[in-house]
Design a protein around this nucleic acid. Structure first.
Lengths: 209, 209
DNA sequence: CAGGTTTCGTATCGATCGCTATGGATAATT
DNA sequence: AATTATCCATAGCGATCGATACGAAACCTG
C-alpha cells in the first residue's frame, strides 16, 4: 500500500510515483491546496483517480508528501546557507539571495510553496494551513538559531533580540515570495534581498530594538 | 437592483447591505475568496441566497465590493501615511507602523485582505487573483511615488532607485501580513517594522543598490 | 499452472459547490 | 382599491467536489 515498501507481488505499477508526486507538487505550488482539484491533479499526473488514491491515500496525504518533497528538492539553499561555516551576516546573505533565486526559477511557480500552499483556507482545510504555518515557524526558528550562534560568536550585538531579527528576516523572505508571485524577476528579488540586508546590525554596532 | 440607487417602490429590504457586506468582507479576509463558500456567507451575513444575489449580483461581485469596502474602511492608514506633509522617512515609518497595527487588530483577521484574499487560486478564479495583484501593485506604486517625491526634495540619495526601495518596502509589508497571520503580535510587528526601517538610506548617504 | 496479491480501467458515488425558478408578501404610485 | 415594483422564503437546479465499487489484468510464489 505504501510506495516506499517493495511490493512482494501483484501487478506492477504502470507509473513512476516520484514523477507523479513532482507533478502534484508543482500544481499545489501554483494553485494552492484547496484550489487544486482532483481533475487538475489527474491530468497533470497522468493518472486515474484510483491510481492516485492507491498510491497516495487521499488528497491531504498527497499534499503532505508534496510538502516533504518540496522541502527536500527545492529549498536546500536554506539549509546550506544556515549551516555553512561562514560569518552570520554572510549566512543570512546567502539565505536571502538563495531565496531570490529559488522563488523566481524559470519553469517553476513563483514564490514558496510554504507560503502559497494555503495562506487562507476553509475550516475543513485548517489542518493543512496549520501544517504550513508550522513549516514557516520552523524556518524562522532555524534563522533565530543561526543568529544566536552568530551573537555568541561576537558577530552581533549582545543586546540584540535574535527572535525579533529572525522574525524580520523570515518576514522579508515571505514578502519576497509574494513579490515573486507578483512577477518580480530574480534580479529585482536580489536587490530586495540586498536592501533587507542593510538592516542587519554589524558587530559592536548599537542596536535600538 | 443596485443598493446605491434609492428604491422607488416595492417591498423594502429587511437587512442592512453595509452590515452584510462587512460580514462578507471579514469572512473573505479570514478564509480567502475561493475557500469562503456561499453557505458560510449565508450564515455570517444572516441572509438567504436570493437576498445575497439580489443585493450583490454574484460571489465575484460581492468579493469585489468587499475589496472596495476594505480599501475604504481598513487601510486608511496607508493613504494617511503617504500623503502626510512629513519627511519621507517619517512617512514610511508611519506606513510600516500603521501596517503593524492594522494587520494585528483584535477582533479582525490577521494580515491584509489584499494578500490573503487569493494568493493562490484555481484557474477559474484567476481574474480575482489578478485584481488582488493589481491592488498590491498599486500600493507599491504609491510607495514609489512618495519615495520619488522625497528624493526630489533631497531627502534621499539621488542615485537611489525608488522602484527597488518601494519593492522592498511593499515586500516587507506583505511579509508582515503573513507574520500577522502566523500569530505575530502588534508589538512584534512594530519591532519588525523598525528593523525594516533601518534599511532605508539617509540623506546624502551612499547607496549601493 | 494454480493461488494469492496488487494495480488496472470504467463508471460512478453522495456531498457540496455557486446559483436560481417560483410564488407569496410588502411597499410606493395612481 | 388597483397597479406596479421590489423583496422575501422555500425548494431545488446542474456542475463539480473528493473519493470508491467493481471486475478484469498482470505480476510473484508455490
Amino acid at each position: 500500500m505504501d510506495n516506499l515498501e517493495k511490493a512482494r507481488g501483484g501487478r506492477p505499477r504502470a507509473f513512476d510515483p516520484d514523477r507523479a508526486l513532482d507533478a502534484a507538487m508543482h500544481l499545489f505550488w501554483e494553485h494552492g491546496y484547496e484550489a487544486t482539484s482532483l481533475a487538475m491533479l489527474r491530468e497533470a499526473m497522468g493518472l486515474t483517480p484510483p491510481q492516485i488514491y492507491n498510491a497516495f491515500t487521499d488528497k491531504e496525504t498527497l499534499f503532505r508528501k508534496a510538502l516533504t518533497r518540496y522541502h527536500e528538492t527545492e529549498i536546500g539553499f536554506a539549509l546550506d546557507a544556515l549551516s555553512a561555516q561562514v560569518p552570520v551576516r554572510e549566512a543570512i546573505s546567502r539565505l536571502l539571495l538563495g531565496a531570490a533565486d529559488a522563488y523566481s526559477r524559470p519553469g517553476k511557480p513563483g514564490g514558496c510553496l510554504f507560503v502559497s500552499g494555503a495562506l487562507a483556507a476553509s475550516p475543513q482545510a485548517q489542518a493543512i494551513a496549520d501544517e504550513l504555518r508550522a513549516y514557516r515557524k520552523a524556518s524562522e526558528a532555524a534563522i533565530a538559531d543561526r543568529l544566536a550562534k552568530g551573537r555568541a560568536a561576537g558577530e552581533l550585538p549582545e543586546e540584540l533580540s535574535v527572535e525579533n531579527l529572525a522574525k524580520y528576516i523570515a518576514g522579508v523572505m515571505n514578502g519576497m515570495s509574494i513579490q515573486a508571485r507578483d512577477g518580480a524577476s530574480a534580479e529585482e528579488l536580489r536587490l530586495l534581498a540586498l536592501t533587507a540586508l542593510a538592516a542587519m546590525p554589524a558587530e559592536g554596532q548599537k542596536w535600538q530594538a
